[in-house]
Design a protein around this nucleic acid. Structure first.
Lengths: 228, 228
DNA sequence: CTGACACTACGGCGGTGGCCGAAGCGTCCA
DNA sequence: TGGACGCTTCGGCCACCGCCGTAGTGTCAG
């Protein structure tokens, strides 16, 4: 029973629109300053500061001071996965309005899901990896095949480092726009990082949405056979 | 952004202590009547009824009428997994008080986690299955080996049915008391169901905690080498 | 038909918490 | 060193929502 109260406390932290906006912005995977989060939250700086304090007290976000800025980020992978879980429930419910805005369109095409890719990009990459037999991903969990290990190494992804880290190595992550699983876990994160390192994709300002560079368009097509 | 608002709405539903108590009670896996949930919620019947209405509107719980009773249950597996995700974040945080009550002790020993086993029982069974090589379960996800398939069939678990159902087949579920993974997914659910069918365990009244029958004590020891 | 029971709808009360304006710290720059 | 900037703290306002008492609907039992 005492644990239930804690559950309510954590959920209540997410249950405020301004705080939900903040957390959603931080799900982009980058650490953001309080000022940037003010814009995301949609309320005044004072109010935002209060929300940030509450979220930090509740250990949902962490803060590092840097000069006169304070950078906030999602505290742990557990928190990120919890938020994804809530998103998945939301996606289950029937849509109430047609969203269909421009930024939504970009989000649908390509975005980060904390530290890996989602949207059409994430699902497309995942489908390609599965089709080549590099990754076996289903509702059952995930596995990287021997040929997949070779492929990732050749592509420049450090699988050993991904395997060594303490979090889940390979797992499906339900996509709230595509409603299908895409590659998550540390493998998904490493793959995304490699694509960023290759300058295939750029993060959009203050959004989880991504834009494809010309090199990325070519690379994704040649390497994965994916075109958006 | 519109999705973030929905996220806040869902989280806010969980973010009330009375509603969190209700959801936690329903995480026992049984459908419960409104009266039973009144006791779980810790508020008056009228207030509880209001909470049940809100949770049903938000599609977190579902209701079936039966005579003059109304039975409520968790609406979908997604919802159950979301709640587990929140629990996992709560378990991450440092404990604030020593709980150590009697019912808590029973919960720690053996309980249901929506539809599979958790607590010392869940972790013990999982450890035994892993030690025999029947299941490979780690942070990476889960897999049932060939010998595991044979073992489950011999034990009376219908793996084909479990595999056929739409949800995740085999996955780790973080235990908020043991802080280690235990067997979840449809395999975990099927294993738990089989143990109930064998009358090895009984559900305690209005609690997620389980009591071990003499047959269960013997069976768990002989079949899995597990003693609580 | 009558009373008991399970549950829900309505209405008013009260407290929590989100909100902003004003002001206060700390940092950077000229 | 003065000022701009980033961010937080304080204080007061107000709305929302959880709460319960009362009353209503539907169901079963005798």
């Amino acid at each position: 029973m005492t644990a239930d109260v804690r559950m309510a406390e954590v959920a209540a932290l997410v249950g405020d629109p301004a705080r939900a906006n903040i957390l959603a912005a931080l799900m982009g995977g980058r650490a953001l300053t309080a000022s940037e989060l003010v814009r995301a939250a949609g309320v005044s700086p004072q109010t935002t500061s209060g929300h940030l304090g509450k979220l930090a007290d509740g250990r949902l976000i962490a803060c590092v001071k840097q000069g006169r800025h304070r950078y906030y980020r999602i505290a742990t992978h557990r928190v990120a996965e919890m938020l994804e879980g809530i998103m998945a429930v939301v996606a289950d419910a029937p849509p109430r309005h047609r969203p269909a805005s421009k930024v939504d369109e970009a989000m649908r095409t390509a975005r980060t899901c904390y530290d890996h890719f989602a949207g059409k990009l994430g699902v497309g990459l995942t489908d390609a990896l599965c089709a080549h037999g590099y990754v076996a991903l289903s509702e059952e969990g995930g596995e990287v095949s021997d040929s997949g290990v070779a492929f990732f190494e050749k592509f420049g992804v450090d699988l050993a480092a991904a395997r060594g880290c303490s979090r889940i190595f390979c797992r499906p992550c339900i996509d709230w726009t595509e409603r299908r699983p895409h590659l998550g876990g540390s493998v998904g994160a490493a793959l995304a990082q490699r694509c960023f390192d290759l300058d295939w994709l750029k993060r959009m300002r203050e959004s989880r949405a991504l834009t494809l560079t010309p090199a990325g368009r070519r690379g994704l097509s040649e390497t994965f056979g994916v075109s958006l």
